[in-house]
Simulated assay, not measured.
Amino acid sequence: MSANRPTREELRRGITVEIEQTNAENADEAEPLRGDIAKILSEEHSEPGGVKVELESGITGRVKRIAPDG
């Protein structure tokens, strides 16, 4: 696991996370996005770049961290 990113087991639908976007033209320069998980797309338990998810907004990306409450 890279830089303490959450594993697939730590994630579930509805959890608020911060992701690095993967489906945008400017994904490399984009700030991390925050949203609720709609689907977990990765099949592996952990991935070097982070577990890939789809947020409820339809945006996909790799989870950087679980967002703090508040």
Rank of each mutant, 00 (worst) to 15 (best):
A38C: 04
E47H: 09
D69G: 08
R13Y: 05
G49N: 11
L55C: 06
V63T: 02
N26C: 10
N26E: 14
I40K: 01
N4T: 07
I15N: 00
D36W: 02
A24E: 14
D28K: 13
R5G: 04
V17I: 11
K52S: 10
E31T: 13
H45Y: 10
A3F: 12
A3R: 14
G58L: 03
R62M: 08
V51P: 03
I66H: 05
E44T: 09
P68Q: 11
R65S: 12
L55M: 07
Q21M: 12
I37T: 01
S42I: 02
S46F: 09
P48W: 09
A30C: 13
V63Q: 04
E54L: 00
R12K: 15
G14W: 06
R5N: 06
D28G: 08
G35E: 02
R8T: 02
E25L: 15
E31S: 15
L33M: 14
I15C: 04
A30M: 15
A27L: 08
I59T: 09
T22Q: 10
L11P: 03
R34Q: 13
R13M: 06
R12E: 14
I40G: 04
R12L: 02
R12N: 11
D69A: 12
V17R: 00
S57E: 05
A3C: 09
M1H: 12
E10R: 08
R13P: 02
S57F: 04
A67I: 00
G14M: 07
R13Q: 14
H45P: 06
G61Q: 06
G14V: 03
E20P: 00
E25W: 14
E9N: 12
R34K: 14
I15S: 02
A27T: 09
E25K: 12
A30V: 08
I19H: 01
G14F: 01
E56V: 11
K39T: 08
S2N: 14
T16D: 00
E44Y: 03
R5Y: 06
M1V: 14
E43T: 11
E18T: 07
S42T: 10
P6G: 07
K64D: 07
G50R: 02
V53L: 01
Q21D: 08
E29C: 09
P32K: 05
E31G: 04
V53N: 04
H45A: 14
D36H: 10
V63E: 05
L11T: 03
E47C: 06
V17T: 06
A3T: 10
G58E: 07
H45S: 14
